[in-house]
Design a protein around this nucleic acid. Structure first.
Length: 893
RNA sequence: GGGCGGAUAGCUCAGUCGGUAGAGCACAGCCCUUACAAGGCUGGGGUCACAGGUUCGAACCCUGUUCCGCCUACCA
């Protein structure tokens, strides 16, 4: 007995923390400085500093960890760089809430003190997700942890901003942007989330200044009546016969009594509404464009909180929704409201606070995207960046080709402050990487830095090179840029992938990553999106606590099929918890069977696995092991994590545990001699260790815990190597399968004939093929042990034993007829049914094959190997049906 | 409106070259056989959404239909 015994069940809670700490303490995820090994690098998609680990993070981190650990074990110099982003708006919201609780607000506190406060919050409670990732076992290089507001990364931001500005790719201008009236900041197009809402369409009459041809007024339809106060035109389609004559005429805007022109513009749909559209350039994206085309005046009617301003006449001071009601009722009183219809529309809300966004004219900083997008499109077109699965490329192209300029300024304080200084004297703008002390234009010192900060995604776009030290020319950049792969969710292809591609190509002259793996989205068991409001959120930390991190990780991996959403049900995790326990117990079995003699042999080097000393069972498991290694590597390299996990599951449970462990028990008992016992122990121990290595990228904790106790292992699996395929034994493995088939056939008979498991049976195997007889003789002890057989006879043919039940065994080329005598216990009726069933199945299959082989078209046109395969199959089936028929004959006579 | 994806066992899903439809879970029967009852053995269960087409042969390729997701869009 080994001293290293295991508990009967696996207790993840007691081992996970120890290993997580150990990996970090030993810095096992830190790549070698000057490594000869090929590089493999990834940057983590930086989670928000305000965030907690959710299933999306857990999935993505698990998959990345599988990549990182397997590559590391396979001899790559792996860098997986972790970090977090500063989440400008979200973080500011958190701290503003704190201030509000103290009866303060950021304006009372002041900019400098406020930012200090945010840093304080960051240091105290920000980035909890980092610890949660460590808990998940993520093998990031924690010594390289980065934060978007770090000094180095901030320098990269300034460098990029300045460079793009000098090149004219960053500009400042009056544009219509999405404004959040609660956060008081501009939002980029992507930060607005649209939802279908039940609204109304109001039909409003604008009186003509000079009624003509009996027409008194023009009716326009709108979903936002309050914006009419800022209307500066009414547009109609120039092709619209109804209104053609009115183009150039004027209408009088109710309430504010402004005279505005009727204009012709192609963008107006003739069919929708009345065919006449009110134009509010200061509060609508489309109207803004129309306004530019027709050089219309823009009149803002709301302030930064979306309250009506001085331009709103009698509605000044009202909230926009109150104003809407008052405008509608006012029009009604004047008889200018024609009708109201129910109308579904898409309303945009702030992605941080869901407040309905107000399109507003405002002075903002923009990145001119088109010149940057071109090269980024090309990089995907010519394959320098590959998407997996490939169809996501379409989404990328669509967006990149229809891209609008990116609004990068935010009216908040937490973030990278825009490195632009405005001159109070001459109005000139000075943009610089280092704080200037005078105006570039007039040389005066009366300058002031722009108050705005940059969109958080601006710094995230630089992440793949800023984290490696850019703009310094560092060794890390040289070794790890471009990164090998970026793993992320499809919903940030726009936010992040596309922008990284643009910035990487612009500033590094190379793609930021060679492959982009887009993982699935996790939904609940019913296929619904998880959300706090629905209450169907599964907390990964709770799952890890309850079922063990390894079980949880394995579940995520096995569900991560490409191109499909993941429906996560808790009982799946429980299922893989059982798998962990199975692994634990086969390890337990192994350790229980490695005795003193074995350890002594180990010490003297005699217990090394020796392929030339394998017996039939050893060769079979070795063959399966080789296949497992091959298939796992192939699957991981093509991002088929589900396939890899399935292969492992099958190997461990159905090959190693169900068969090899049962087969090897014979030799472990010492009945085949001490030498054979030692060989069996060596094979078992080796296969177990290899199994731990194979599983390690998926289940890092349990595998380390077990490997530590297995003989001949020191240190960590993580730092060790990955198993390599060994010698192949295809023919020997097939022979083992023939033996297994006989075992299955006997078990089958036993169950069907209700032979109690405790009763031993006799068995006769008749086989024409001498090779098969030899195989079965070699496997005789296995058949006895695993099919619970007492007396076993193997012969070419013989007297059919009396009162026996028969079956035909063999998945291989040749069939054996198996008889189990049951004394007086045979229920011939049951037996007849059994055989008839099997016979009809075989005959059905055979007749299908015969029909096909009888078809000349098939034999002529199908590839010869397919025809040959089917011929052989038919032959085997005919042998089988013959034997079954003979069996039936015997029963009936 | 445009685009993408899906429909295979009771459930969740694999199925890569077009060549015998698979797994896990669930279910049923028997079993506490010394690694494991979070287990073992055995079994039942499918018109591959529907209709055509291509082919010797289709779950797979093509066309159309139905249903279900998701993403996008300036019909105010």
């Amino acid at each position: 007995m080994s001293e290293k015994t295991l508990e009967k069940t696996y207790e993840p809670g007691s081992v996970e923390g120890r290993w997580a700490d150990y990996w970090i303490k030993e810095k096992l995820a830190t790549p070698g400085e000057r490594s000869e090994k090929p590089s493999f690098s990834m940057v983590i998609p930086p989670p928000n500093i305000t965030g907690a680990l959710h299933l999306g993070h857990a999935l993505n981190s698990t998959l990345q960890d599988i990549l990182a650990r397997s590559r590391r074990m396979r001899g790559f110099n792996v860098l997986w760089l972790p970090g977090i982003d500063h989440a400008g708006i979200a973080t500011q919201n958190v701290v503003e809430k704190q201030l509000a609780a103290e009866g303060l607000d950021r304006h009372k506190v002041g900019r400098e003190a406020f930012i200090e406060r945010v840093w304080k919050w960051k240091n105290e409670s920000g980035g909890t997700i980092i610890n949660q990732l460590k808990r998940l076992g993520a093998s990031c290089d924690w010594t390289r942890l980065r934060f978007t507001m770090d000094e180095g990364l901030s320098r990269a931001v300034r460098e990029v901003f300045t460079s793009l500005y000098k090149e004219g790719l960053i500009y400042r201008g009056d544009y219509i942007i999405n404004w959040c009236p609660r956060c008081h900041t501009a939002l980029s197009d992507l930060e607005v989330e649209f939802n279908e809402t039940e609204g109304s369409l109001w039909y409003m009459r604008y009186p003509l200044v000079k009624p003509a041809g009996g027409i008194e007024y023009l009716t326009v339809a709108t979903t936002r009546p309050e914006t009419m106060l800022g209307d500066t035109a009414v547009a109609v389609n120039p092709e619209d016969g109804r209104y053609k004559a009115l183009i150039g005429k004027k209408v009088r805007l109710p309430f504010v009594e402004r005279e505005i022109p009727v204009i012709g513009d192609d963008s107006v749909s003739i069919e929708f509404g009345t065919g006449a559209v009110k134009i509010t350039p200061a509060h609508d994206f489309n109207d803004f464009e129309v306004g530019r085309r027709h050089k219309l005046q823009s009149i803002k009617v709301m302030d930064e909180s979306a309250r009506m301003n001085e331009n709103a006449g009698p509605f000044k001071g009202m909230d926009r929704y109150e104003a809407r009601k008052k405008v509608v009722s006012g029009l009604e009183e004047k008889g200018l409201l024609e009708k109201t219809e129910k109308h579904k529309l898409m309303l945009g809300g702030c992605y941080r606070c869901s407040t309905i966004v107000e399109p507003t004219l405002s002075k903002q900083w923009f990145v001119k995207v088109a010149p940057l997008a071109g090269p980024a499109i090309e990089a995907v077109e010519d394959g320098r960046i590959k998407f997996v699965p490939k169809n996501w490329e379409n989404l990328y192209f669509d967006w990149m080709r229809n891209i609008r300029d990116w609004c990068i300024s935010r009216q908040i304080w937490w973030g990278h402050r825009i490195p632009a200084w405005h001159c109070r004297d001459c109005g000139g703008v000075t943009v610089s990487t280092i704080d200037p002390d005078k105006c570039e234009s007039c040389g005066c010192k009366n300058i002031e830095q722009d108050p705005d900060v940059l969109d958080t995604w601006f710094s995230s776009a630089l992440w793949p090179f800023s984290t490696l030290g850019w703009p310094e020319k560092t060794g890390d950049l040289k070794a790890f840029y471009p990164t090998s792969v970026l793993s992320t969710s499809f919903d940030i292809i726009f936010f992040w992938v596309a922008r990284m591609a643009m910035m990487g190509l612009k500033f590094m002259k190379d793609v930021p990553f060679r492959e982009v793996y887009i993982h699935a989205l996790i939904r609940d068991a019913k296929g619904q999106k998880m959300s706090k409001s629905k209450g169907n959120v599964i907390d990964p930390l709770v799952m890890m606590e309850q079922y063990g991190t390894d079980a949880f990780r394995f579940t995520l991996a096995v569900l991560a099929a490409q191109g499909r959403d993941i429906k996560l049900a808790e009982d799946r995790i429980a299922g893989y918890r059982n798998f962990c326990n199975k692994i634990w117990n086969v390890a337990r079995f192994t350790l229980m069977n490695l005795d003193e003699t074995f350890f002594e042999a180990m010490a003297s080097g005699r217990a090394r696995v020796d392929e030339s000393r394998f017996n039939m069972a050893d060769k079979w498991i070795w063959e399966r092991r080789n296949a497992c290694i091959r298939e796992v590597i192939e699957a991981i390299d093509t991002y088929r994590f589900d396939e890899a996990a399935r292969v492992l599951y099958r190997f461990v449970w159905h090959e190693l545990c169900d068969w090899y462990v049962e087969l090897v028990k014979l030799d472990l008992r010492g009945e085949s001699g001490a030498e054979r016992k030692l060989d069996a122990q060596s094979t078992l121990a080796t296969v177990m260790m290899d199994t731990m290595k194979l599983l390690h990228p998926f289940m890092p904790f349990i595998t380390e815990e077990i490997a530590e106790k297995l003989p001949g292992h020191a240190g960590s699996l993580m730092a060790g190597d990955f198993p390599k395929e060994g010698r192949a034994f295809p023919d020997e493995a097939a022979r083992m399968e023939d033996v297994m088939d006989v075992i299955r056939a006997v078990r089958n008979i036993r169950t069907d004939m209700n032979v109690p498991p405790s009763a031993m049976a006799d068995c006769f195997c008749f086989a024409d093929d001498p090779g098969l007889r030899e195989t079965l003789s070699e496997g005789a002890e296995y058949i006895k042990l695993l099919a619970r057989v007492k007396g076993l006879v193997i012969a070419e043919k013989g007297e059919r034993p009396g009162d026996s039940v028969s079956a035909v065994a063999g998945a291989g080329q040749k069939k054996a007829e198996v008889f189990v005598p049951l004394g007086g216990l045979v229920d011939f009726e049951v037996e007849e049914k059994r055989i008839t069933k099997e016979l009809s199945k075989a005959e059905g299959e055979a007749s299908g094959l015969m029909k096909m082989l009888g078809n000349e078209e098939f034999t002529k046109k199908a590839p010869p190997e397919v025809v040959e395969k089917d011929r052989a199959r038919l032959e085997v089936l005919e042998e089988k049906t013959g034997k079954l028929k003979a069996g039936l004959e015997r029963i009936r006579t």
